[in-house]
């Protein structure tokens, strides 16, 4: 690198810290006081519905947008300053690269801008092309690339120079299933190397498969935050039951939140040890139990539940 990574306290600083980070566009509050700390070496999932403020938060972190209030640091450096971007890779949601350059030229441009030592450029460029599967198209103009290939290239750009933090904004939106699998593998590899990955994604299954920690954002506010185990800890049991009166069904709420779907009762938040007592209570109330299915709550269930969308 042209300039070595900053030493001392910043080496042990969290990957990202924000304090009441807010952004207002006129009357619209795009981000309302985001406070979070993302440790080093994790794959962090940043979730939320459309318009929740996810991309706004990413742009604030990278200094592409100016906060209306609050503050933050990236790798120990205040956000907005050029030093905060020195050890960061970024794949934008709107991934567009100069159509009149070849893939190798785009990567060389970013090597230059990232301050990578010129002697290391060939290795960096070929490595990035290989990782994203574009080695045989390295000399093609970007104008001839499909959207998926451009997104792969964008990921390669984000990986140049061994960044300590990689921010990926919807990194698989244009990719086919194979491409999505490849990106998940790349994220896992980055984690093994101690790189922090900030994943902004709509694909809950993707987040569930690779993320260690998750923050859910809605209307610019954090509505849930924690490890996947913490977020999905509530156990759910599905019970197939007949001949159970309405009053008896209501009385089961002492075990947890009950969704009555006719023949199936879904009880959320019931401790695994209390499942036999639940079944016994149903039987005592005159119900006939046909099946009991413990169910692991998916991130999608939890996400929809947090947003008040059912499930």
């Amino acid at each position: 690198m042209r300039e070595p990574a900053t030493g001392g306290a910043t080496d042990v600083a969290p990957a990202i810290v924000t304090r009441d980070l807010a952004k207002r566009y006129g009357r619209i509050q795009a981000l309302a006081g985001l406070t979070m700390t993302i440790p080093r070496g994790v794959v962090f999932g940043f979730l939320g519905p459309n318009g929740a403020g996810k991309t706004t938060a990413v742009k604030l972190l990278l200094g592409l947008s100016r906060p209306s209030a609050g503050s933050g640091e990236i790798l120990g450096q205040p956000i907005g300053g050029r030093e905060s971007r020195r050890r960061v890779g970024y794949l934008p949601e709107l991934f567009r690269y100069q159509g009149w350059l070849t893939a190798r030229e785009v990567l060389a441009l970013h090597c230059d801008l990232a301050g990578i030592d010129r002697a290391a450029w060939p290795r960096e460029i070929e490595n990035a092309l290989a990782v994203v599967g574009l080695t045989d198209r390295g000399s093609s103009r970007i104008a001839t690339f499909s959207k998926g290939m451009q997104q792969r290239l964008g990921l390669g750009v984000a990986l140049l120079g061994d960044p300590e933090l990689v921010l990926l904004d919807e990194p698989t939106s244009a990719l086919d299933p194979v491409g999505r699998h490849d990106v998940r593998e790349i994220m896992r590899t980055l984690r093994e190397r101690g790189v922090t990955v900030f994943l902004n994604s709509h694909l809950l299954s993707e987040v569930e498969q690779v993320c260690d920690r998750v923050t859910v954002l809605d209307h610019g506010k954090v509505i849930a935050d924690g490890t996947l185990a913490e977020l999905l800890r509530a156990d759910t049991v599905r019970v197939q039951v007949t001949d159970l009166s309405h009053d008896a069904r209501v009385s089961l709420s002492s075990f947890g939140a009950v969704d009555d779907e006719g023949e199936w009762l879904i009880v959320r938040g019931v401790d695994k040890a209390r499942v036999p007592a639940l079944v016994a209570a149903i039987v005592r109330a005159g119900g006939n139990v046909h099946a009991v299915e413990p169910r692991h709550e998916s991130l999608e269930d939890r996400f929809l539940s947090l947003l008040g969308g059912g499930a």
Partner: peptide
């Protein structure tokens, strides 16, 4: 076009 996003996210003033 969005090409400025990737460039300005680098340590470029």
């Amino acid at each position: 076009s969005g090409t400025a996003l990737a460039i300005l996210a680098r340590p470029v003033a």
